[in-house]
């Protein structure tokens, strides 16, 4: 039997999905045909996987792995279409998105502030670092029982767990960024008369943005893992809850439809962070003009 967490990990393929490399499609000498062939390369394995899935489930293959109860792609597609027409399912999606965004936004803010504090002040570092090092290794999922006890509503508990999972990657990335900022930027600013606040907002924060954004994209991935797991355990709404309910109700097509929905949501939110990061950090030498 797989644990919940493993199930969720499998269920979030899009959480850290890198966008398909563009390198393959570089046009030019190879000619159009080669370019078209190159462009179709990423599609081949996807089509192959869906086809294999279809065949394995259609013929109810049992060869150590048992496909007899697994829904086929057509069932899943049908289920998705039906579900997306119901207001109830859309409500579950909105509910999960709301939790992710609140937990993630809170984590970004706290992570950046604490990271800068630790990176720039010895006092703050002495105060907070040990606490962070103790709390960080605890998987956020392990906090579910405590969150149920602590918070008046499960909604707040789930947001807390999402926050807890997402805050550390941002904190650590920001903290390290403080050490890699070129000193000459600060020197230049202070010889031009900048005070501490101006150095913070005009040098430190923009200079740390590349690192902060790499922390944010890691955070977004773990935030989805945690929100879905927390929903499965203690939620009354949300895609994670809905997926688990489908399993309990033996609606296996619904389970896969839920998985795919979670994947799509994870992919979309990560993509948005990526886009935003590129825009903010377009000054980096590696970014095209």
């Amino acid at each position: 039997m797989t644990t919940t967490e493993e199930r969720v990990l499998q269920a979030v393929p899009g959480a850290e999905a890198p966008p398909v490399e563009r390198a393959l499609s570089s046009p030019g000498r190879g000619g159009r045909l080669a370019a078209a062939a190159a462009r179709s390369l990423p599609i081949v394995p996807i089509v192959g996987a869906v086809l294999a899935w279809h065949l394995l489930t259609t013929y109810d293959v049992i060869a150590w792995l048992r496909f007899d109860k697994v829904p086929g792609p057509l069932d899943v597609f049908h289920s998705l279409r039906v579900q997306f027409e119901t207001a109830e399912f859309r409500q579950h999606v909105v509910s999960s998105l709301g939790r992710i965004l609140s937990g993630f936004a809170l984590a970004s803010l706290v992570g950046v502030v604490v990271g800068i504090g630790i990176g720039r002040s010895k006092v703050v570092a002495a105060l907070l670092r040990p606490l962070i090092e103790i709390a960080r290794p605890i998987p956020a999922i392990a906090l579910v029982p405590l969150a149920i006890l602590l918070f008046p509503t499960s909604e707040q508990g789930i947001i807390f767990i999402t926050f807890f999972a997402a805050v550390f990657p941002v904190t650590v990335a920001t903290m390290h960024a403080m050490k890699t900022l070129p000193l000459v930027w600060m020197d230049a600013a202070s010889t031009l008369g900048a005070n501490r606040r101006q150095v913070l907002f005009h040098i430190v924060l923009p200079g740390a943005m590349p690192a902060i954004f790499s922390g944010l994209s890691v955070s977004m991935g773990v935030a989805w893992i945690c929100v879905v797991s927390a929903e499965m355990i203690s939620g009354q709404f949300g895609v994670g809850y809905w997926t688990w309910m489908s399993y309990s109700l033996l609606d296996y097509a619904g389970v896969v439809a839920g998985m795919l929905t979670i994947g799509a949501l994870g992919f979309t939110t990560s993509w948005l962070i990526e886009r935003l990061g590129r825009r903010v950090n377009r000054w980096l030498p590696g970014e095209a003009r």
Binding site: A188, S190, T191, G193, G207, W283
Partner: peptide, 20 residues
């Protein structure tokens, strides 16, 4: 010294803020 005394410095390295 420094900015109060209207002393300003040109550095050897890239002291420009790259995002501006």
């Amino acid at each position: 010294l420094g900015p109060e005394a209207h002393c300003a410095m040109v550095f050897q390295e890239d002291a420009l803020l790259p995002w501006r």
